[in-house]
């Protein structure tokens, strides 16, 4: 299996296109960083920040009483709890914009990493058919499932590499442009009615991981389309279209109760960590189950078709 993945990795990295992708990613992170540097405002710490938070809490409480939505109430309750925690532990909320803020903002570029992963994923099976090399690949003493599995794992590794580049490069660039904070800033997390502190790097890694779920799901879908239809353009086109528009469509459809079964309603798991779910009746476990169902369907389709296929072309 390791050898098969080495092979796939070699085939990806002996093509110049891959380096172009990495270069584009790095250039865009840089532009993103410079853009943020320009926008950086003069920073003054609000001397009366505790006062401000108190006022905010009073306002939030009022809103909470007026609100009818259960979801909104939950949201206000969390905000108030976090504000209280800040006051109690002397943690001012408006920290100076620093490297970690930048790394968090750079997570918007995960969509770019996703785009490149989808391109690789859509080509990894279809290209073998286009090149005709599939014939020589499938007459080795290795069964087809293993070959397909090695290709899929390679796609995941590639996604991981792209995310790692994004994370590492934005951290380095952020440290240069915005500096590191003088003292470690914990992330405040509200869970089970309690506020806890979490290491910012661990938090950001989880944040990146959860933000990449739609990317991974779409890469898996592209992989399936590429395997079933042997057509990389179709796989790239459809997956990218959904990557860029999927969440908007789901938002439009969110007034229907069945919308919660749409893949994109469930890909954003951050909604359960950071905020409130987009629809009632949704929970972390519901979304995870939905994601698993989609995932299994994609994989089953890809593997069954690939195993049964007559290679005639």
């Amino acid at each position: 299996m390791v050898n098969l993945i080495k092979n796939e990795w070699m085939k990806i990295f002996k093509r110049p296109g891959t380096y172009v992708m990495i270069a584009i990613l790095i250039v865009i992170i840089s532009i993103f960083g410079i853009f943020h540097k320009y926008q950086e405002r003069q920073f003054n710490l609000d001397k009366n920040w505790e006062q401000t938070l108190h006022q905010e809490n009073v306002a939030l409480k009022k809103q909470m009483e007026q609100s009818n939505s259960k979801l909104e109430k939950q949201y206000y309750k969390e905000e108030i709890a976090i504000n209280d925690y800040r006051i109690k532990h002397h943690l001012p909320f408006n920290e100076k914009y620093n490297v970690w803020s930048f790394v968090k903002d750079a997570s918007q570029l995960i969509i770019l990493a996703g785009l490149f992963t989808i391109i690789i994923s859509a080509g990894i099976v279809a290209s073998e058919f286009n090149w005709g090399t599939i014939k020589l690949l499938l007459i080795r003493p290795i069964n087809r499932s293993k070959i397909l599995a090695s290709k899929y794992l390679t796609v995941l590794l590639f996604a991981l590499l792209m995310l790692a580049i994004l994370f590492a490069f934005s951290a380095v660039l952020g440290a240069i442009l915005f500096g590191t904070p003088d003292h470690p800033v914990p992330y405040l997390k509200y869970a089970n009615g309690q506020v806890t502190e979490q290491n910012i790097i661990v938090y950001l890694m989880i944040y990146y991981g959860l933000s990449s779920i739609d990317t991974i799901m779409l890469a898996t879908m592209a992989f399936m389309i590429s395997t079933v239809f042997r057509n990389s353009s179709l796989a790239i086109g459809l997956s990218l279209f959904l990557l860029f528009t999927g969440s908007q469509f789901t938002l439009l459809l969110s007034r229907f109760s069945w919308a919660k079964y749409i893949l994109f309603a469930n890909t954003n798991l951050m909604q359960y960590v950071d905020g409130t779910p987009m629809m009632e009746g949704m929970s972390m476990s519901f979304s995870v189950i939905m994601l698993l169902v989609y995932y299994v369907i994609f994989q089953l389709l890809a593997f069954l078709v690939f195993k049964k296929r007559d290679v005639a072309a």
Binding site: N3, L4, K6, N7, M10, K11, K14, R15, W131, G132, T133, K135, L136, L137, R140, P141, I142
Partner: peptide, 21 residues
């Protein structure tokens, strides 16, 4: 039919590729 090899690899890399399998 025609021996379709990976054109962007060298001959040796192609052989390594199949040798690993």
């Amino acid at each position: 039919e025609n021996p379709e090899m990976y054109k962007f690899l060298t001959g040796y890399q192609n052989l390594i590729h199949y040798a690993r399998m």
